[in-house]
Write a protein that binds this DNA or RNA. Sequence first.
DNA 1: TCACAATGTAAAGATATCTTTACCTTCTTG
DNA 2: CAAGAAGGTAAAGATATCTTTACATTGTGA
Lengths: 223, 223
Amino acid sequence: MMVHVLYIEDENEIGSWVKKDLKKRGYEVTWLTSGEGVEQYISTADLVILDVMLPGLDGFSIGKRIKNDNGNVPILMLSARTAIEDKIEGLGFADDYLTKPFHPDELAARVEVLLRRFQKNDELIEIGHLAVYPEDLRIINKKTEEEIQLTGKQYYLFQYFIRHLNQILTKEQLYEGVWGEAYIEGDKTLMVHIRYLREKLEENPAKPKIIETIRGIGYRVKL
Amino acid sequence: MMVHVLYIEDENEIGSWVKKDLKKRGYEVTWLTSGEGVEQYISTADLVILDVMLPGLDGFSIGKRIKNDNGNVPILMLSARTAIEDKIEGLGFADDYLTKPFHPDELAARVEVLLRRFQKNDELIEIGHLAVYPEDLRIINKKTEEEIQLTGKQYYLFQYFIRHLNQILTKEQLYEGVWGEAYIEGDKTLMVHIRYLREKLEENPAKPKIIETIRGIGYRVKL
DNA sequence: TCACAATGTAAAGATATCTTTACCTTCTTG
DNA sequence: CAAGAAGGTAAAGATATCTTTACATTGTGA
């Protein structure tokens, strides 16, 4: 339902104001003070902000792990203004980096750019017989040339798929991402909405090609 | 509800494919073959595409008239590839121009750019105690720092105001723009939705400051 | 192939959103 | 200031959307 930023930072003061500032700008922010438990947030994050100067498991290995788990998510590295700069750039997993201290506007601008680069990069996403415009998620049926209108929930659900193209998404992830609350085992709400979506998107909803079912896990939308 | 393009072009063949192409890209297109009757569309248009080589009232005077009526609307001029090019640029009212023949993608790209420049130009629009992010129309109450959520109709109505900032909008325009059908004199639907909006946006809905009433005409949202 | 588990479907029930209505308030003008 | 016109409001009615439920279908492994 919102853009979700995962922010890993051990310094309390800076962490607190960065989180507050990003929230004000409309992002949903999860702030962790260490890399522990990072796994559960990776797949739902739309962007990761990572401080490399972390105690314990250092930022570098966390970054690598994240990129491994979810190659689609952009990573913005933070570091103190030292010689490490060059190192970071050479590391490969950071998509952008920023040295401390920085101005909140500078951070916000880079976040904005990264999100655009990763999500709205393409002019047009083509999935089967559908053309999807990522900026505003307009969907056109290429055969009939008509636009497909979605309701609110359908829109958020579809958006979630588009933001995580080609990834297998568990029912938990999807429910969490769209409803913002924990998925309860056995609940059929999600499934019914998948069906509504298929009804609108698929040529033959009984033989879905756009939204595929991954038995025992969840669903996926592939390019 | 949609981005509305007013397209004035006397050549039948080119007019027909340009209209079709723009529609496919998700715009609502009104195509006129002459400048006659242009007035009624000006205030509802989000962008005007104007062929200067028109019979009768020529493109230049139409352009000037449009800019006069609605300075907020971007104008994209079309012309044959001749010496006029320079002239156009010097004219002042055209915000961009394109020489024939052109590729549909080129036209679409310029339309896109113009719309962005005119609508989403500012990082942030501040109206009273509200901060509005034009790209996605997120609204933040600056005092409470909370985001204000709108329903579908409220969203479209507010969007219409933001796209026509500082302009007095008649009930007809608003109804037409949001509902896509003719306003029936005396109908209260629009008024009730104005009230709903005020309930969410105004500090004191009984003394509205954001959406002002223009008695006998309609409403306005000023910067 | 049979049985069970997982997924799909239709339809009823619940809720949110939108429209209509009846009445109230405010503004304007003689 | 009185009366009519324009706008505002609350609440009922209608519709659209979302959730729940009960049952059907499909896939998988013994």
